[in-house]
């Protein structure tokens, strides 16, 4: 039987670690991929994922049933990403521009079903999309990711990023404009 996230967290708050495991399995993918896209760095993304579930594991009582669980856990992820950004300021900005270094172009797995030509085109396209997204400002990037890859509505995004709905609207618009320019659409 399928329980809602809110059911599971309520159970976990009562002490049932099985519920935690269920939540972990449900959200490990989304959280990891959110962090991957926002941070463009696998090691950092995995750190963020670990941090998010650590917080969930130890601070389960921080969750109040007024909010949806999804927005809550993503706001934890958002905060974790912000921490990473603050640390990153000390790193050389070029780090994320080089191919195959800390980035994840190297993680590509060829799709057996594509012909070599198709595959190459797809890979090129993916690479361009990724590069373009990486070059957005972090707020625009995050808002866009939450919208396009996690299907959150503006209200939820505003909650996760701690800003207003109008901000979200503008961020997404600007992100899309930048991307359209870069990808020559």
């Amino acid at each position: 039987m399928s329980q809602t996230d809110e059911d599971l967290i309520a159970e976990y708050q009562l002490g049932n670690v099985e519920a935690f495991e269920d939540l972990f399995q449900r959200y490990k993918g989304p959280i990891l991929n959110f962090a991957l896209r926002v941070l463009s760095n696998r090691a950092d993304a995995e750190d963020v994922t670990a941090e998010v579930f650590f917080k969930l594991y130890t601070k389960k009582h921080m969750y109040q049933p007024v909010a949806k669980f999804k927005t809550w856990i993503f706001s934890i992820a958002h905060n974790a990403c912000m921490t990473v950004f603050r640390k990153q300021k000390r790193l050389i900005p070029m780090w994320f521009r080089k191919d195959g270094e800390g980035g994840y172009e190297s993680w590509d797995v060829p799709d057996d079903q594509d012909s070599p030509v198709e595959e190459l085109k797809k890979k090129e396209q993916q690479k361009m999309v990724r590069k373009a997204i990486q070059q957005l400002s972090k707020d625009q990037r995050e808002a866009l990711i939450l919208r396009e890859y996690h299907q959150m509505n503006y209200a939820q995004i505003a909650e996760v990023m701690s800003c207003t709905v109008d901000n979200v609207k503008v961020l997404i618009y600007r992100a899309r404009t930048c991307l359209r320019d870069r990808l020559a659409l």
Binding site: K28, N33, T49, Q125, V129, E148, R176, L179
Partner: peptide, 18 residues
Amino acid sequence: KDTRCLSSLLKEWPDEPL
């Protein structure tokens, strides 16, 4: 039209497993 194209292009970027 372009924004809709963009959305579907973005979807081409697959999720990665943990």
